[in-house]
Design a protein around this nucleic acid. Structure first.
Lengths: 282, 282
DNA sequence: TATCATTTGTACGTATGTATT
DNA sequence: GAATACATACGTACAAATGAT
């Protein structure tokens, strides 16, 4: 292939900078090159480094797309795709009718990020809200989901949304053994995180609780319920609690917003790893 | 304005045409509606349900975009955006010059997915490869990253890529105490996962290892190194190992492809947490 | 309360580059 | 080399949400 000379594309380049309102002290004309990296990728890189570098800060507005088009000498689609990329990365927020803004949590380092996340087993904050979407009694567990323990005859199925500070951070679907649920205080599902409650106070005793965690992209439904970009990163967790007889008295599937999820694990030489005690899942 | 209506596309059944071979028994004209849900969202929903429902199976080809345009009576951009969405969700793979295909791991249930993932501490498979990108001796740990333990005076900094079955699944940056590293077998960093090696065999003993895990979207660099869609979901893990004196003799930051990451945790009142089982001192 | 300008979201049509078959 | 098919990119238009008037 020929390393061809760059096609001169100075269409809108000479236009005077009319960008005066924005706080964004963006630097002067960037020279984008038609080449191996797509134009939208180059634009995204520039903006990304402005965010990580501190030129753009949390909650800052970006200039309108039209102005960015002029500035970089590219079309609207190109800018849009760059913005889309950064939205998916969690660095920008774009909403109809408003300016595109830098995400509140953008630019903080990874270590700091960990302060804002919600460990699934942590105690809820003061501003924690629980919404019960629906409840169905006397249902059976779906086939093949029980990776430890044996299902019981009958469950209560609950779907809930948890919010912190008004923002939903987790949607979940859980099955609680019907007999056990009937013994719990009335309305407890609206007041408490059930798994921590069961582990601390339930009768009969919980013998073992196990969680599997994977990461994925939010599907349409999850994105809507979590007020989160479609295909944004999420954590999916499956949790099972068993009683001393090996009955799975609790099964839950959780989807956490990626920006609000974090877990900590210990590793050490004297500890047998949980999965070494497991039967292999096929 | 009136939609042009879906052109029935049944005639083109030339023998050479492999398109008719696709198992896409796509139903007859789907009526998309201009309304609250965007057209591309409707298309994405249809295809998504075909995948999860089994009409489209892993490694199946989608019809060319042009044909999808005709089928749904929408333009190329609309189809592309639907495909993009599903690519970001990990359900489709789109490559230049080839048909869009259904991702190999698409359509399997969450529980099943867990068998393909790589627990960070698991033993490497036979087809496991390690590439050392670079090595720098006698460096100090970056400021403020050490969430447990105290940094030592000098580290070896390594950047590596791990592959399984030829596919990269993790990129990492790690710091190993210089003195400790000098005592390790030569070239061990190219042959072994260092943390498990240290935990099992190092001298002095590791007293405690702790991991923090969050989820995020792949940035440009990570996406390239992992051969993964930009902004695709990834897990980021930070791990620190300390010796009995509380010195952080190992610090590592890892980025895992979302489709290859999974961890398991135990929870329960009668199971001592790993760190509770640790010998407190020698 | 209603209207208007601004700004982004969605969508169409078209053209060209580039990788695969 | 040719045909196929996706990626990128331009220009344009209208819809919908927001904020200010």
């Amino acid at each position: 292939m020929e390393s061809k000379g760059v096609v001169p594309r100075d269409a809108a380049k000479s236009t005077k900078d009319r960008i005066t309102e924005t706080k964004v002290a963006m630097s002067t004309a960037h020279d984008l090159q038609h080449g191996p990296t797509a134009l939208y990728g180059q634009v995204a890189s520039i903006i990304r480094s402005q965010i990580t570098g501190g030129t753009l800060r949390a909650d800052d507005d970006l200039p309108p797309i039209e102005q960015l088009c002029e500035r970089y000498g590219v079309s609207r689609i190109t800018i849009r795709q760059a913005i889309q990329t950064l939205v998916a990365e969690g660095l920008l927020i774009s909403r109809r009718g408003r300016r595109v803004t830098v995400a509140p949590q953008a630019g903080v380092s990874q270590a700091d990020t960990f302060k804002d996340v919600v460990d699934p087993m942590s105690a809820p904050q003061d501003d924690h809200e629980i919404t019960v979407l629906d409840r169905t009694d006397r249902v059976v567990l779906p086939e093949g989901v029980c990776f430890i323990g044996t299902p019981t005859a009958s469950y209560v199925r609950l779907r809930k949304v948890h919010r912190s500070g008004g923002v939903p951070y987790c949607v979940m679907e859980m099955y609680v053994d019907q007999a056990l649920f009937n013994r719990l205080p009335r309305g407890i599902e609206r007041r408490e995180k059930l798994a921590p409650f069961l582990i601390k106070r339930a009768n009969p005793e919980i013998k073992v609780g196990r969680e599997r965690i994977i990461v994925a992209a939010a599907d349409f439904e999850e994105a809507q319920m979590l007020e989160y970009p479609m295909a944004g990163p999420v954590a999916r967790m499956t949790r099972i609690l068993c009683d001393p007889d090996g009955n799975a008295i609790y099964y839950g599937r959780f989807t956490y917003r990626g920006d609000r999820f974090g877990v900590e694990r210990e590793q050490g030489p004297y500890v047998k790893q949980p999965w070494e005690q497991l039967r292999k899942s096929k």
